[in-house]
Nucleic acid binder design. Structure first.
Lengths: 189, 189
DNA sequence: ATAGTTTTACTAAACGGTCAGTAAAATTCT
DNA sequence: AGAATTTTACTGACCGTTTAGTAAAACTAT
């Protein structure tokens, strides 16, 4: 901890930007180094491999997203408002932190690959976030806010996928409204 | 040893499988060659570059999808049923042709990249399909089947994104139902 | 001095792509 | 018809470049 306190963070930030733009396989370690304004070998001083660097970037991003989503939600006491706020927060995060958005969109597809278990950890971290969302939906179902026929995991997927498609907040607001109308109970139930 | 007949198609099929599994940058031409059981140089006999090969694969896949979607739809005369059938067909295609599904999911993210115009053609081909879907929604709006507040482009995006998230037909059915409830007009409007 | 950083210099393997050449099939010439 | 020529389908060896990763020297702060 002599000279630089934030070198490691600087590398993570640069890596995230690069991975978000071109995807894991589209970026070389030299590119990341250039973006971070350090020499490539220095990255290997802090991270043992490209794969490990990516995992750290992913984990860091998911922490950020999860914090952003649930900190605001927990201030709410009504489940209807909790869920409503979650959707708003999600849109807010996705339109502002577009790097995180893209890195999720890009690498989520690899979860279904069976030949490489290097993605297992990455998948697990994502799934733990999805579970928190589906739990919230499940609780809302019990309190008769959300239609009981709805599978909470599928609903969480729809939120996660539907609300990351665009960078335009207005489009995402429109999409959110459609999803919301599909989720909440009909008045004449 | 002249084989000739379907070599080109065999390469496209192998390329699609490989691209779907690992993404454009995750696959080498040698891998594709191995998958197609031909020599790498032969790929360059039929296709001038990796990029061009990918575009052909993409175009071929989009043609397949579009044909599958709209052939069935056009037999229907009511717009409500047309749209309903389109969603069904889309799920059907995505759960059976998982290679196409993954290749779309993987490479769609590149559409927002501004630094490379090599993706322009790829994007254009995808957008023409999206337009056909949003046109169908727009017409359904005029006939007061679909809520008039809904933006047809955003609705098309929601369908395209929400209904490609999984390979499990049951999950996709659930998601379709949520989307559908969000789209159609309320009885007590 | 010494422990923590950063850089220089390097490697082996893999990459996209090229090229000269070849055997067989199709076409043209006589 | 059959010989001569051209075109098609395909191969292996190879090119320059880039890749992830390493060893060790050099610098920096205490």
């Amino acid at each position: 901890m002599r000279k630089k306190i934030n070198t490691k963070q600087k590398i993570i930030e640069a890596a995230r930007k690069s991975f978000a733009e071109k995807g894991y396989n589209g970026v070389s370690m030299s590119e990341i180094a250039k973006e971070a304004k350090v020499k490539k070998a220095l990255i290997y001083y802090y991270f043992p491999s490209k794969e490990e660097l990516f995992y750290k970037v992913w984990h860091y991003s998911m922490d950020e997203l999860e914090t952003h989503l649930f900190n605001e939600v927990e201030n709410e006491n009504m489940y209807l408002k909790k869920l409503k706020k979650l959707l708003k927060s999600y849109i807010n995060f996705m339109t502002n932190k577009t790097e995180v958005q893209r890195i999720i969109l890009r690498e989520r597809v690899n979860f279904s690959r069976t030949d490489q278990d290097s993605w297992e950890r990455v998948k697990d971290r994502y799934m733990s976030l999805r579970k928190r969302i589906s739990n919230l939906i499940e609780e809302s179902k019990n309190l008769e806010v959300i239609d009981s026929n709805i599978d909470s995991n599928d609903a969480a997927d729809l939120i996660l996928n539907g609300l990351s498609s665009s960078n335009d907040p207005r489009s995402l607001e429109n999409i959110r409204e459609i999803i919301w109308r599909g989720l909440v109970k009909n008045e004449e139930n």
